[in-house]
Structure formats: structure tokens, C-alpha cells
Nucleic acid binder design. Structure first.
Lengths: 127, 127
DNA sequence: GCTTCAATTAACCACTTGGTTAATTGATAG
DNA sequence: CTATCAATTAACCAAGTGGTTAATTGAAGC
């Protein structure tokens, strides 16, 4: 997920790591220093620093310098777009719509020996 | 994001690519063959095949063999957990709660020369 | 000035990712 | 049997990831 990737890809990529998600969960409870954020993890300080850079690159956290400390805060806005993107698929998991389609499709084929669905793809030629 | 990663990480990682998201969007409209899915992209067939493997590994699609063709279908269930995870942060982006906290915190510090927030982190010792 | 401490940067490593071209598998059509 | 076609696998490559240890920066405290 290079720096040239689109914002949504960068957001999803940043969320695709349990350490980073745990850091965001911690920050949801309030600001924290880098040291405090890294304390729960069996991981070196540079490793935490890199995770924070990824989160900052995704716009999911902001860092502010306070003397020797860097105070991190959650910036949840990018999650909004990710949430919206997923929202569009809600009907597909609610009520198991896709399983229903599959079931109907499967039984139909068993009867008539042909594939079909509500939004049929362009038929392949079998001359 | 190795195969040993947790399901949520695998889901987010699978979504962190615009080609794969476009494939899912296409499949939301109905089943399709691998060839049909790859047609819109300026990309080789093996590249599409790899993307489909990632999506299948995340449980986001299912493939069924039909003669020479592989019919792909959307399986949106894994998105449900991702959506739920993000949902927990809704209040942080709605109403710009985090910006509010930052504002209050910033003005407070300007007045009293000390940092503080609603859920304060453990204070650092400055002996 | 010297030390200590928080954090980052530098350099390195093993592994993954996203793409390529070439070869392979399986089914269909003559 | 042979040719064709959909799709995958194999082998390869450049770049990115997630981690390490060692070195560096910058502010604080005596």
C-alpha cells in the first residue's frame, strides 16, 4: 500500500493490523504518549513508532509535541468513508441474501441444468 | 498479512486494494466469471486470479466450477465484523467529537499551561 | 556541561504483495 | 486426435511490511 494509493485503500490497510487496531482502541479512551501506547505490546519502540507513522499517514491519529513526549490523539474521520463503503453491502449480509441467491440458483440448476440469477451476467456462447 | 492473521485483519487487508473493491462492487450486482471480472482492468489474467484468491481467502467470494468457467459470487458476511468494528468509532467522527476535545484541551492548556482531557492518561512524573 | 529519558531514524533482515510472462490443466468443438 | 479457450500455476521481480538492534535527536534535571 504505497503512498500513491487512494485514501480508502490507505485507511483499510492501516486497519489491517491488530496492533494498530488496538492502538486506535486505546486512543478512543483518550490521548496517550507513544510510550504509553507501546507499553501493552511485546515490541520494540521503533516498531511502535512505525505503526504510528502508518496510522498518521492514514490520518487516523495526530501527534503533538509536548517537551520530550509526543501526545497522540484519535482522528476517526477517515473511518467514516470506510464505514460508508461497507454500509453499501449491508443488505448482502443481512438476511443472508447472498446465501438465498445461492440456494435458489443451486436448486434451479438442479432442476433445469442451467445457471441463472437475478442480475444475470452476459451469457457465454456455446455454439 | 500472512495466512496466520486474524479474520478481521484478513478482511481489512483484502479490502485495501481498489481492484479488489471494484471486483466486489461488480459482484454485488450479480455473479460473474473470472474473465468477466477481469475485463474492465488493464491487467493480466494471473493478476486477476491472484486478487480473487485473496478475496476467497478472506471469505468475501465463493467460486464454483461450471465447465470451463469459474462462477464467482459475493459472500459479504466478513464485512459485517469489519463494519461492526468501525461502528464503535462512529461517535468519534460524528459531530467532530475528537476535534472538540482537541479544541477544549488546547484552549485549556493555553490558559493554565497544563495538558488534560476527559479521559486523562496516567500523568508522567516530573520530579 | 553531563546524564538521562522519549522518541525517531538508520540500516538491516525475512517475508509478503502485486504485477509480469511462460507453461499447465481441463473442458469443448471439430 | 487436435486445436482452442478459461483459468490457474510456476517462476520471477521490484517494492513494501513488520520486525530487529544501534545510533541520533532534543528536551529536562541536576
Amino acid at each position: 500500500m504505497a503512498n500513491t494509493d487512494d485514501p480508502l485503500s490507505i485507511t483499510f490497510a492501516a486497519l489491517a493490523d491488530p496492533t494498530r487496531r488496538a492502538i486506535l482502541t486505546r486512543l478512543a479512551k483518550g490521548e496517550a504518549t507513544v510510550g504509553e501506547l507501546g507499553e501493552p505490546f511485546d515490541m520494540s519502540a521503533p516498531a511502535i513508532s512505525k505503526h504510528l507513522r502508518v496510522l498518521e499517514g492514514a490520518g487516523l491519529i495526530a501527534r503533538e509535541v509536548d517537551a520530550r513526549w509526543r501526545i497522540c490523539r484519535l482522528r476517526a474521520e477517515p473511518m467514516h468513508d470506510a464505514h460508508d463503503w461497507l454500509e453499501a453491502y449491508r443488505r448482502h449480509w443481512e438476511g443472508n441474501l447472498d446465501r438465498l441467491v445461492e440456494f435458489v440458483e443451486r436448486t434451479h440448476r438442479a432442476d433445469t441444468k442451467q445457471r441463472d440469477s437475478g442480475a444475470p451476467r452476459t451469457p457465454r456462447k456455446k455454439p
